[in-house]
Simulated scan of single mutants.
Amino acid sequence: MKGVAFFGIIIFLGGGALIGSLANPGVQNALDDFIMAIINNFKNVIVEGNECLGIPPLDPLFIPGFPLNITTALLKMRGDISNIDSTGLRTLEVTSLSCNIITLSVQLVMDMPAFHIGGLYNVDGLAAIIFPIYGNGPFSLDLGNFKISGQGQLGARLNGSLYMRQLDFTMEMETMAIRFEGLLGGGELGEVLNQIINEMGLTVYNQVRAILHDTLMRVMLDFINFSLKDVLLADIIGGIIQPPGPDPGPGCGSTPAMAF
């Protein structure tokens, strides 16, 4: 299907003359700049939401509670996490973006300097088989140098109009600081207590990361397709249409482009 669509674009844009123009760095840069501008405008959606697309503000991002079940050689613990919110998405910055105008693939990297997760926990269990572990109260989980790498695939219809047909992310963090208020142990647990905290923090992080991944992928895909709904690849290449400027978001009255 991708080959058929791209073949249609070649016909639409003038056949063999297009092949030479695609090798021009200026043509590549035009598409890069256009997609970069759309993703930068997505930061407004993070802060303000977008009523037309049914997207609420994402910073803070409220996350449903979930059960906590940890079983390791040193720790068995059950409980739950609730009243979760996270802040920091508004600090998201695109640090690199490149589009391949032949394959219509997109590679991007986004950084979040700091990402905070907070909420309530309630747990009980055993450490080292015999030491009771229990506690409830607020917790905080702070992530540093959070990096999001994205891979996308643009599509082009036979009339030359663009859409983002696929988008996915991988997420990594460099540092993690965890605090569970009221977490108690029997005696001087020392390193065991640190292990408990790390296991709990990693479990919470992995759960939140999965929700963040799905949320970010869905709303960014909707926003990009909304922004591309009237955009022709030929207009970008020819310089007829310029990258969108800073804007709170697209107005109502249109629907997002369908992703095939």
Rank of each mutant, 00 (worst) to 15 (best):
G8L: 11
I11L: 14
F12T: 08
G15W: 02
L18D: 10
G26I: 06
A37E: 04
N44P: 02
I46G: 00
V47L: 10
G49K: 03
E51V: 11
I55E: 03
I55G: 00
L58T: 01
L58G: 02
F62W: 03
P64V: 01
N69S: 13
T72M: 07
R78Q: 13
D80M: 12
D80Q: 11
I81M: 15
S82D: 15
D85N: 15
T87N: 15
L89K: 09
R90I: 13
L92Y: 01
E93I: 09
T95F: 00
S96Y: 11
I101R: 07
Q107W: 06
M110S: 10
A114E: 14
G118E: 14
Y121N: 12
D124M: 04
I133T: 13
N145F: 10
K147V: 12
I148R: 01
G152Y: 02
R157L: 08
L158W: 04
Q166Y: 15
Q166A: 10
L167I: 02
L167N: 08
D168I: 05
E172Y: 03
E172Q: 07
E172P: 02
M173H: 13
T175W: 05
I178S: 14
R179P: 02
G182P: 03
G182V: 01
G187P: 13
E191M: 10
N194C: 02
Q195M: 08
Y205H: 13
A210R: 09
H213G: 02
L216T: 13
L216Q: 03
I224C: 01
N225Y: 09
F226P: 00
L228Y: 00
V231E: 01
I241S: 07
Q242F: 05
Q242Y: 05
G253T: 12
G253P: 10
S254D: 15
F260K: 07
